[in-house]
Design a protein around this nucleic acid. Structure first.
Lengths: 196, 196
DNA sequence: TGTACATCAGTGAACGCGCGTTCACTGATGTAC
DNA sequence: TGTACATCAGTGAACGCGCGTTCACTGATGTAC
């Protein structure tokens, strides 16, 4: 019995691993093109399998996308937690960390926008996304806890940074490097504004 | 000759009018669903014609969307110009005006995001969009012209407001009214932050 | 006043393509006896 | 040690649908003579 159980567990963890491989592949594909142009076939190819096979692991495309997104969200939430608990200037470092993350993985936050605005997800997925957003906002809220309107400040800062990345992502006629520089300057500006 | 000329002009202005009707129809459709779910057939139906007919007026879907967007952009640019030149508290009123516009016509700014991030438009359309963005940012810049870093402040404020609307558009489990109230509170917060 | 011809907005059917998803099937691996 | 059977990941072809776009055609209006 014990044996049977652990065999089953092994099976399941193997399945879990394969699932991860698919998400890894998805992340790599997301880095190459706008997520709404990413197809199941793209991801399958990157993972070395066939599109049909993905459906053994995810009920549909949206579930896969949401899971990939949530993985990214976990990562930044953890990073921010670290930064905030250790930094001497949490506000400044949070802005820098978050902005850097957004610039590197802006696909994720475009996904978030998409999920929030367009997609009609089932209740379950919506709930997962909301929870991630809430936890992210909790991190930002910590930055202002000794000030009035901490939650409002957190929301404003979060929205402002999303806005910076979305608004200037394709600032016309500038190189990627210039754009990142500009975003960082805007980040500094936000730091100034939010620091008193 | 004079006659022929004015007949031709009449024809052209009639054509122009029909074009406007199509854009009007598009605007109405954009108000009902996310713009990336809007089809040529939707717009045609709303305009009382057939999808094929639209192609007499616009070479393709993107051109139509961009023209509709530009019309909205014109409107807000003019509104802001008025507000800024007349208000006793231009910063406050600009924020309120712009936010109100975004809340009412958020489709347009999601289109902007889309155009900026995903779409591969031809050079001509990109140029038109850029010009509109530039003119919009010029308005914001006026608000800060007596302060250092006016342009950076303008960019920050613009991005922040876009971010507010995009980030909290679907704030979970809240009514539209609550959401607008929340956005307005965030607008007030931004006013506080940007006003010193 | 009537006839032939040109123009042109709009129709509606069809094309073509992409893509999510399904499904019958294969082949490898393990299990039972 | 060998045979029959079960399981299950993955294949690849096909389905179905939506949608942008095209195109041959219609019918109304105006023009020429």
């Amino acid at each position: 019995m014990k044996n049977a159980q652990s065999f089953r567990e092994l099976k399941e963890s193997e399945k879990e691993n394969r699932k991860k491989i698919i998400i890894d592949a998805a992340e790599r594909v997301f880095a190459t093109k706008p997520f709404n142009q990413v197809t199941m076939r793209d991801i399958a190819k990157e993972a070395g399998i066939t599109a049909g096979a993905i459906y053994r692991y995810f009920p549909d495309q949206q579930s896969l996308f949401v899971e990939a997104f949530l993985r990214g969200a976990e990562k930044i939430i953890n990073d921010l937690e670290q930064v905030i608990s250790r930094s001497k200037n949490p506000l400044k470092d949070t802005i820098a960390t978050f902005l850097k993350f957004l610039m590197k993985h802006d696909q994720y936050f475009r996904m978030m926008t998409h999920f929030m605005l367009d997609a009609h997800l089932n209740q379950d997925l919506v709930e997962k996304l909301n929870e991630a957003e809430r936890r992210l906002l909790d991190q930002f809220t910590k930055l202002f806890e000794q000030r009035p309107h901490a939650r409002l400040l957190a929301h404003s800062l979060f929205a402002a940074m999303n806005g910076v990345v979305i608004t200037f992502h394709n600032y016309p006629g500038r190189s990627k490097k210039d754009i990142h520089q500009h975003m960082n300057r805007l980040g500094d500006m936000l730091y100034q504004l939010f620091s008193q």
